[in-house]
Amino acid sequence: MKTGFNSIKRIFILSIVSIFLLAATMSITAVAESDNMVIIPYGDSEYRYMVVDQGEGTGFELTDFDDSNFLTGDAGFGSIYSGCLLTSSDYVSTEWALNSDILVRKEFYLPAGASNLKVFVAIDNDVQVFVNGVDISGGLQVHEGCPSWNSFEFQADDDLLNAGTNLIAVRGRDRGVASFLDIKVTADTPHQEIPEFPTIALPIAAIIGLAFFFQRKKDE
């Protein structure tokens, strides 16, 4: 009788451990993805960029453009100017000369099924935004005054997005006094639904527990 008792005891323990492992796995899965993610934050690093005369650099937005001659720099791009908050040394990481254009490129990754990609821009003065070679800003958008977070918001069509590597390219234009450019990119990613905890798991554990209890009573 002792053998039967030990067998039921082992089954009961394994069942309880399995239930807890299943619950832990589902908890990990639940936090693996969120509905909306910041893909590129303001102040991000490792951009490819080039400062050019206004209007120069046609084709820099294309995915097959050779940017090997571009420099590597961190956002924000700009000049130090005491009259605006974002043109202070706290936010300007890479110099951008006045009265010129800056061409900025950065690759980023999206999982399959990503959608609703948005590009937020802080700019002084004007900006044009491309995703995977396509203009999503409707041409060069004019901005006056000091730069501020989210001065512009542009959205890319979902059919422009790739599962895997994507490219954002931005042309900034300065018209004097102060220059500044920084961007943030967000997107919705597929939400991992949390599977319901199997409703049969707890009753099974209870049945095994009762069997264990009665077998123990019998052995006594």
Results as ranks from 00 to 15, higher is better:
91 Y>N: 07
129 V>R: 09
199 T>C: 01
150 N>P: 09
185 V>L: 09
205 A>Q: 06
213 F>C: 02
70 F>M: 09
8 I>S: 07
184 K>N: 03
139 G>L: 07
59 G>A: 02
63 T>C: 00
61 E>I: 05
178 A>I: 00
120 F>L: 12
165 T>I: 13
136 I>F: 03
186 T>Y: 00
9 K>P: 01
128 Q>H: 06
104 V>A: 05
38 V>L: 10
28 I>W: 04
109 Y>G: 02
149 W>G: 03
105 R>F: 00
33 E>S: 13
209 G>V: 07
63 T>E: 02
21 L>G: 06
14 L>T: 13
16 I>G: 02
47 Y>M: 01
180 F>P: 03
34 S>T: 15
58 T>G: 06
19 I>R: 08
47 Y>Q: 02
94 T>K: 09
57 G>Y: 06
199 T>N: 09
94 T>E: 09
111 P>Q: 09
29 T>W: 06
93 S>I: 08
6 N>M: 10
197 F>T: 14
73 G>R: 13
136 I>L: 04
67 D>I: 00
61 E>H: 11
145 G>A: 06
118 K>D: 01
79 S>M: 09
146 C>W: 00
123 I>V: 14
107 E>C: 00
179 S>A: 15
156 A>R: 06
133 G>N: 05
121 V>C: 13
15 S>V: 08
102 I>F: 00
120 F>G: 02
211 A>M: 15
165 T>L: 12
78 G>C: 09
70 F>I: 13
69 N>L: 15
58 T>P: 14
37 M>H: 11
207 I>W: 08
113 G>D: 12
61 E>T: 11
70 F>H: 09
167 L>W: 04
152 F>H: 15
190 P>F: 00
26 M>D: 12
95 E>F: 02
146 C>A: 06
202 L>D: 01
48 R>A: 08
18 S>M: 13
37 M>W: 03
156 A>K: 04
159 D>W: 08
116 N>D: 15
191 H>M: 13
31 V>R: 04
212 F>K: 14
176 G>A: 12
